[in-house]
């Protein structure tokens, strides 16, 4: 009985001291806090595959690759993307649908990557600029195509990718 009492006491105290030893060791280890935003240019790591916000790359001629086929819009599970088309007349006098506005709501996006994966002309990509906080939700709604931009003329023949270009909409 008394043996139990004292051995219990000493064992308990020993276990506590071992625990304190571990924290003592940790007291001197390297600290892991990342000092954002000071480390923006130095140690901050953002993976290239990070999906922060959807962007539509434009080249130096203010041209993008979006054919406004709406595959991304139909694939998006929660209506984040809205592709608005307009009809223009080409030089040959044909009527043609082109992209008017490409609307993207960052606040709705779940970053599932389906739009980028299914885009037949690789017109959109996810960028890793993660600092997208705004004060109002409205400002999360963006137009991805720039003002006055137009569709890049393809030099090569567009591969007839039957699989990809068949939009899900019926």
């Amino acid at each position: 009985m008394s043996g139990n009492y004292f051995s219990g006491l000493f064992k308990g105290v020993k276990s506590l001291l071992v625990g304190m030893g571990e924290t003592w060791k940790e007291l001197w280890t390297k600290k892991v806090t990342a000092e954002y935003p000071e480390n923006r240019k130095t140690t901050l790591f953002v993976s290239d595959r990070w999906r922060a916000t959807l962007t539509m790359p434009h080249d130096e001629n203010n041209e993008h690759a979006c054919t406004s086929c709406k595959v991304c819009e139909t694939n998006c599970p929660n209506g984040t993307i809205q592709v608005i088309q307009k009809v223009i007349e080409t030089e040959e006098g044909k009527k043609k649908k082109v992209l008017d506005r490409y609307l993207y709501d960052l606040g709705m996006c779940t970053f599932c990557n389906l739009c980028v994966l299914t885009c037949p002309s690789d017109a959109i990509v996810f960028s890793k600029d993660f600092e997208n906080a705004t004060f109002t939700r409205d400002r999360l709604k963006e137009q991805l195509n720039k003002e006055g931009s137009k569709l890049r003329e393809k030099k090569k023949e567009v591969k007839p990718e039957a699989e990809k270009s068949a939009p899900e909409a019926e």
Partner: peptide, 28 residues
Amino acid sequence: TAFVYGMREREMILHIFEKVCGGRLIMN
């Protein structure tokens, strides 16, 4: 204190996840 230790080690895995699939928690 233990909580912080656990999170510290977890962070290393999340870092690997981020590099693999661009997501830490929601890996996709």
